[in-house]
Design a protein around this nucleic acid. Sequence first.
DNA 1: TATTCTCAGTTAAACGTTTAACTTGTTTCC
DNA 2: GGAAACAAGTTAAACGTTTAACTGAGAATA
Lengths: 338, 338
Amino acid sequence: MAATIKDVASKAKVSIATVSLVIHDNDRISPETKKKVLKVIKQLDYHPSKSARDLVSQKTGNIGFILTDDHFLRTEPFYTRIFLGTEFEARDSGFYILLTTVASDYSDNDPLPRFILDRSVDGVIIAGKVPHNLIDRIAKYKLPLIFVDYVLEGDEYPVVLIDNIQGGILATNHLIDYGHKNIAFIGGDIQHPSIYNRLMGYSRALENAGIKHNDKYIHTTSPYPDRQNGYGAAKVLFKKNKNITAVFACNDAMAIGAMHYLKDNGYHIPHDVSIIGFDDVEVDLMLDPPLTTIRVPKIDLGTEAFRLMMEVLKNKNTNRKKILVPVELIIRKSTKKL
Amino acid sequence: MAATIKDVASKAKVSIATVSLVIHDNDRISPETKKKVLKVIKQLDYHPSKSARDLVSQKTGNIGFILTDDHFLRTEPFYTRIFLGTEFEARDSGFYILLTTVASDYSDNDPLPRFILDRSVDGVIIAGKVPHNLIDRIAKYKLPLIFVDYVLEGDEYPVVLIDNIQGGILATNHLIDYGHKNIAFIGGDIQHPSIYNRLMGYSRALENAGIKHNDKYIHTTSPYPDRQNGYGAAKVLFKKNKNITAVFACNDAMAIGAMHYLKDNGYHIPHDVSIIGFDDVEVDLMLDPPLTTIRVPKIDLGTEAFRLMMEVLKNKNTNRKKILVPVELIIRKSTKKL
DNA sequence: TATTCTCAGTTAAACGTTTAACTTGTTTCC
DNA sequence: GGAAACAAGTTAAACGTTTAACTGAGAATA
C-alpha cells in the first residue's frame, strides 16, 4: 500500500499537521523540521491522496468537457484537437479533464453527465453546439461554465470563439484579390452563429470591394455542413448560375463536397473555379488540388478555454469574457487568379 | 450547495446509515422506509459525492490511459479512436478515463503521470509503444496494467492486440489473388511487434502460395512508419527493382507516401503498380485512387481494453490474457488484377 | 416462561487530508 | 519584571461517505 501522511508523520516523529504544513510550504515550520520531513517524504515516495484532498477541500481538480457524440465522431478531428489543447493546458496546471459526450438529440429524460451529479468537476467546458435543454439543466448546478466555438445568443457565459467574421473577410478578400467577382457562398444551417458570421464576413468584404451582393450565389439551406451537403449545394448553385468563378465554403468538409461535384461535372479546379474552405483540417493537403483555406488554431481554442476557466475559478468573476481567436489565410492550389 | 447524505437523513428522519443502505439497495431496510428515503433523495436531487466515496472505498472509479504525445498528435486519429472506444465503454460502467500523454523520449527524471502518484486511478491502460523505462517505473506501483496495440516481449501483462499476422496474410493473399508475384513490403522499424508480425504474415502468405521470398523487395529500415518514410522507401525499392508490380505497406501512412512517390515518377496506380495499406484511416477514401487496405477496428481495441481491465479488477486474475482483434480486407481502387 | 432468532434499523469508526484554534517556550518591549 | 508578541509546532474537527458492530422489539422455539 502507498504511504499516507500518517506514515510520514510517525517516521519523521512529527504530527500529521506538520507534514501537511511542510507540503504546503508553510513558513511556520522551521527549516530543520522541514528538511527532515521532506527527506522522509522522499524515502517513502509519499504523495498526498487526491481523494482525501478533494473531499476536505471541496474541490476536485477536474474540469468536465462536454461535446455531442457526432462532433466527437466526426471524421475530421476538429473538436478532438480542441480537447487536446484543453488537456495539455490542464496538465500543466495539475488538473484533469473528464471528457464526456452527449447525444445530439439530448432529451430531458436522458441523464446528465455523471460528473456534474456526483460533484467530480469544478467547472464545465462545453465545446461546439449542444442541445439547449442540456445547457439549461446544467446551469441549475451553478457550476462555472465556459463555451468554446459556440454561444447561446444573449447568454452571459464566458466564451472562446473563432474570429469567424474576420475569417469570412479574409477568405472573400483573397478571392477578390484574385480578380473574382462572382463568388458563391456555401453554408450549412445559417442559425449556427459560426456559419452566420462567416457569411457576414463574406458580405462585408464584398461590400468593401464595391461588389454587388447576389442572393442567388448564396446557399445556406443545408442542415449540416458536411461533405454530402457541400456536394448538393454546389449542384444547386452551378445548375442555376453559369458564371460563378469562385466558391467560399463555410468549412472544409463542404468545400471538399463541392470540389467533388465540380470534378464530377467536368470543371477543373482551380482553372475553371477557385474554391476556398474554412478550418484547415488535415486532409486538405491530401486533396487534388490541395485546398486553400482559413486556418483555425484548434489547439489554441482548447487552451484558451482552459485558461478562461482558471480565471473564472480564481476570481469568481462572472462578468462575461469573450475571447476571439484569430485565424489565418492559407493559400494552396485550389484558388487561382482569374 | 448540493445536498449531502445528512440532509437526506434528517429530512427523512432516519440515520445516514439508513440512507446509505437504501442507496445500495440493502434488504435490511423495510419497503416503506426505502420508499420514504427514495422520495426525499429525489426531492433534494441528492447524488452521493464521488470524493467521499472514493476516499472511503479506497477506489476511484477512474482508469488512466497513457500514450506518447506523438501518437496522440498524429494526423490520423488512430490512437484517438482507441481512446474513444475505451471512453465509451467506461461511461457505461460508470468509470472515468483520465488521459495523459508522455514524451516519447521519456527519461527517468521526468515525472510519472500524476494520476499514478496521487492514487486517482484503479488501473492503467497503455496504448501503443511507450518507453520501456516508463513501464518499469509504473510497474512498481502494482496497479493493474493493460496494454493495447503493443506488448513488451516476454512480459506477463494482459494485452489487446490487432491480429497483425492474419492482416499480413490477408493483404498479401489479396495481391496474390490478383495475380501479383513481385510484391514489395514497406515497413518501419522491424523491432516494433506490429510491423514485425505484418511482415510475418506477408512471408507466410508468399510461402503458402509457393512464391519465392525476395529480400530485395523488403524495406524495413525506416525509423518511423510515416508518410515521408513511405515515400523514401518506395524510392529505394523502385530504383533498384524495375519489376515490382505490387506493394504492401505496413500502414496507410507509408502507403500514401509510396503512392506519392509513384505518382511523382510517372507510375499509374493501380495500372502499373497495385498498392495496399493497413489500418484503414479516414483519408483513404479521399485519395486518388482510394486505398485498398486492411481495416483495423480501432474503437473495438479500446472497448476490449476496458473490458479486460474490468475483468482484471474483478478477479484479480493476473494470469496473462491476450485478446486478438480480427481485421478485415477492404478492397478499393488502388489494387488491380494483373 | 425463558431463550434464541430475526427484523429493521442506529452508532460509531474509518478513509486521508486540511486548517482553525490552541499550546508552550522564548523574545521583545516599556 | 510582567505583559505582549512571536515562533514552532500540536490537537482536533471537518469533509461525505461506507460498513462492521451494536440495539431493541417482537416472533419463534424449547
